[in-house]
Simulated scan of single mutants.
Amino acid sequence: MKKAIIGLVAGMLIGSAGMAAAATTQTVQAALAKFTFSVDGQKQTLKNDPLVYKGTTYLPVREVAEMTGYGLEYDNTKKSIDLKSKGGTDVSTELKAKTLLKGRTLIELLAKKYPDYATPTDNKLSLSLDGNLIIGDQKYALPYDSQYNYDVSPLIDARVLSVEDL
């Protein structure tokens, strides 16, 4: 009889411990999905498939950060993720100020063509959202559309860029 009571008590303890552990763990059901993913019109391949949960798509943040030019700092003890722009530039503004030429932004193309002006700290090569382009001591006003696609014909007319550059 004692063995039966001990067995019953032990079974209840094990059962309640299992229920307590289950109560602290939350499970969700999500689906892996395949998406076409692009950054500034350039198709990208994700190494890890996105998850879809309750109609919301969750992307792997480290991969997306790298694709968009951000660095990622992860702190497990604080449970924090910090995205930082690389090179000291305001990437959010730069992403708005895009004209893709041969898969590069206008600034990237000009930085390659004029490397002496491409130092991020001296602001000798910059493009503002209102179309003002600075290259060294020269200023150019570039017409643009609502998507911040800039017309580079003034740069071709001024011989800053050639048709071959495009």
Rank of each mutant, 00 (worst) to 15 (best):
96 K>D: 03
85 S>Y: 07
84 K>W: 03
87 G>A: 13
81 I>F: 06
123 N>D: 11
122 D>S: 14
82 D>I: 14
131 G>P: 09
98 K>G: 09
112 K>F: 06
88 G>E: 13
124 K>D: 04
72 L>G: 00
80 S>N: 09
100 L>H: 00
104 R>P: 00
105 T>S: 12
96 K>R: 07
104 R>F: 00
89 T>Y: 06
99 T>S: 02
120 P>F: 05
94 E>H: 05
94 E>S: 09
108 E>C: 01
127 L>W: 00
111 A>Q: 05
97 A>R: 02
131 G>L: 07
95 L>M: 11
99 T>Y: 05
71 G>D: 14
108 E>N: 02
100 L>R: 03
72 L>N: 00
122 D>K: 14
126 S>C: 12
81 I>R: 00
116 D>K: 15
115 P>T: 06
86 K>V: 13
86 K>G: 10
76 N>C: 07
81 I>S: 02
98 K>Q: 13
124 K>C: 02
111 A>H: 03
80 S>A: 11
108 E>P: 03
108 E>F: 00
118 A>E: 07
72 L>P: 03
90 D>K: 12
88 G>Y: 12
132 N>Y: 08
127 L>Q: 03
85 S>R: 10
127 L>P: 03
70 Y>D: 08
85 S>G: 15
86 K>F: 08
112 K>L: 12
98 K>Y: 05
125 L>A: 08
73 E>P: 02
74 Y>L: 14
109 L>T: 01
86 K>Q: 15
70 Y>N: 09
126 S>V: 10
138 Q>A: 15
131 G>R: 12
92 S>W: 11
98 K>L: 08
116 D>H: 13
111 A>I: 04
136 G>Y: 05
74 Y>T: 06
130 D>C: 06
73 E>I: 12
98 K>D: 04
133 L>Y: 01
76 N>I: 08
